[in-house]
Write a protein that binds this DNA or RNA. Sequence first.
DNA 1: TAGATTGTTAATCGATTAACAATC
DNA 2: TAGATTGTTAATCGATTAACAATC
Lengths: 209, 209
Amino acid sequence: MPNRPRVGSLPSVRRLPSYLHLLRELDGVESVSSTYIASKLRLDSIQVRKDLAITGVLGKPKVGYPVKALILSIEAYLGWDNAAEAFLAGAGNLGSALLGYDGFARHGLSIIAAFDANPDIVGRTINGKQVLHIDRLPGLAKRMHVRMGIIAVTAPAAQRVADLMTQAGIRAIWNFAPVSLSVPEDVVVQDEDLASGFAVLSVKAAKWR
Amino acid sequence: MPNRPRVGSLPSVRRLPSYLHLLRELDGVESVSSTYIASKLRLDSIQVRKDLAITGVLGKPKVGYPVKALILSIEAYLGWDNAAEAFLAGAGNLGSALLGYDGFARHGLSIIAAFDANPDIVGRTINGKQVLHIDRLPGLAKRMHVRMGIIAVTAPAAQRVADLMTQAGIRAIWNFAPVSLSVPEDVVVQDEDLASGFAVLSVKAAKWR
DNA sequence: TAGATTGTTAATCGATTAACAATC
DNA sequence: TAGATTGTTAATCGATTAACAATC
C-alpha cells in the first residue's frame, strides 16, 4: 500500500515535534504503538494515530509504527531534513539565547548570521558568531539567498526590520516581537509570543492565588 | 449595569496579552472600538468583542470601550496586577535570557532567584542576580513561600527539577523543556515549546522551499 | 434622527473523541 | 485462534463567524 502524506491541521503540526523528540529517544527500537506514544506524551491514542497519518507512514495492527520511518517522515514533512539557513535580527537577551541554542540543528534550522543596531552589541561575538550591523542585512540576505528571518528586536523596531527582510527576499519570518507585522502576501509569518503562554499559566494559577 | 467577568476560552486568554500591549500604547486615549483593535491586531472585531467580554468591561455603542478600565480589568483577570514571585531553574542560554528580560514586570512576573546544577554557572551573576545551586531551591522555596517555578533546564533533567519544585510547595510551573512533566494534580503546568511554533513556520514555508 | 457600534443568539466550521470494522 | 492495534467513518465538542436587535 502506498504512503500518502496528507495536509495536517495546525494543532497536529504543533504536536509533531514532540513525537519527533520522543521517537529519537527510542534509539534502536523497531516499532512503537500509538498507545505507547500517547501515554508518554499524555495524549489520546486516537489523536496520535490521526496525527501520524499525516506523515503517510502506515502502522501494522498489533505491532505499531516503524520508528525509523516515522522519524524520517516527520522530518521530511516539516522540511527539517535539510536545514533552513536563517538570519537573526536582534542580539539582545532573547536573540543571544536563540543564537546560542545548539538544538536548532535538530530542528532543521541554522542561524548563519546575527544583526543588531545597537553599537554596543555590533561587533561582539556571541557563541562564535559575530554580530553585524543591521544595515548589512539586506545586502547579505540577497547575496546569500537567505529566505528565512528571525525577529528578536523590540516591538517598536520590529516592523522596520520586517520591511528590511522582505525587501531583501526573505520569505519566512519567525517573529518574537509582540506586534502584528505587515508583510507582502507571499511572505509567511509565525508569531511567537511568550506572554500568551504565561497568560494561560496565570489564569490556571489564579485558582489558588 | 454591573460588570460580570466570565471564564474565557483558552484561545481568548492567549489573545489577552496582545490586547493589553496595544491598549498600553494608547496612552491618553479615552475610548477604543473593537474595530480599531481588530484592525491593528488583524483579528475579527466580533472576536475582539467576545474576548473583551470576559473582562466584564462594557463598551458603549458608537463610542467603544474605556481604555483605562480595560487595561486594569485584563491585568486583574490575568492576576498581573500584583507580580507573582518565581524561581528559575536552569541558567543556560534560555534561562539567562528569561532572567535578563525586564519586560516580565509588565506581565506580573518577578524572577527572584535562579538555580543551576552546573558548577561553571553556579555562583555567577546574571543580570544582577546570583545563580545558586539547585540543591538550595527546595529550602528557599519553602522559606520564601514561592509558588511559581520556571523550568529552563535540559529535557533529561526537567522531571527531577519538577519534583524538587512540587515537593517544595511550588504550585505553578512554566515548562520550557520539551517533555511532558508528571506532577501532583493540584499543580498546574504550562508547556512552552519553541519547536512547535517553528514547525508551523516550516510547514507554511514548505510551499516555496 | 441616522448611523456606528455593542452584545447576544444562532449558524458554521474545525478539531477532538467515540465507535467499529479490518488485520496482523 | 484470540486479542491487540490500526485506520476510517460518525458523533461530539468547542471556537469562530454571522446575523441582528439594542442603544448611544
